[in-house]
């Protein structure tokens, strides 16, 4: 998985996005085994267009089902409008794109208290706050919640 390259490609294309999920957790807290990088993108037409361009540059593939699976570069513009969550494959790792996140009111309000950081290689990112990470874990159906992540987030929040 090449997280740096994925982040740099999104940054170069000026995609307004916040990291959520396991990669964000491992960057902010401790190493955590995760297999995809989750982006919450600002849900407007221009930004979705930039996101489509970044994903095409990464050589990402996507489909609603097996029958239409293929490179996103071959799709007509606007394909990111079709559903809430997209699970893509790319040569640099699996990428999930969220247009909304359950438990969090809006991208704009989460962006106000988002955290900025850099990977050790220097790739810049912005990600949701610990409080928001906790809120979206708690909004998940119980079997999908990551209990170890919730415990560490609660510890971090209680020590601040």
């Amino acid at each position: 998985m090449n997280i740096d390259h994925i982040l740099e490609t999104f940054n170069r294309n000026n995609v307004a996005c916040l990291l959520i999920g396991g990669v964000h957790f491992l960057l902010r807290h401790k190493p955590y085994m995760t297999f995809d990088i989750d982006f919450w993108v600002r849900d407007d037409a221009d930004n979705l267009g930039r996101c489509e361009k970044a994903l095409a540059e990464l050589g990402a593939e996507w489909g609603v089902g097996d029958e239409d699976w293929g490179p996103v570069a071959q799709r007509p513009p606007g394909w990111l409008n079709s559903q809430a969550v997209f699970c893509l494959a790319s040569p640099f790792g699996a990428i999930d794109i969220f247009r909304s996140v359950q438990g969090l009111a809006s991208w704009e309000s989460s962006n106000l208290h988002a955290v900025s950081g850099k990977t050790a290689s220097g790739a810049e990112y912005r990600g949701i706050s610990d409080q928001d990470m906790l809120l979206c874990q708690e909004a998940l159906p119980e079997p999908m919640r990551k209990l170890d992540r919730i415990r560490i987030l609660k510890q971090a929040l209680s020590s601040t």
């Binding site: 699976w69 699996a94 909304s100």
Partner: peptide, 22 residues
């Protein structure tokens, strides 16, 4: 996890949860 069939399966699960919040 990065294979098409795995990605499609995960996408269906996640959309069942998140579509309602879009």
């Amino acid at each position: 996890r990065n294979s098409p069939s795995s990605r499609i399966r995960e996408q269906k699960t996640k959309n069942n949860i998140w579509n309602s919040s879009l």
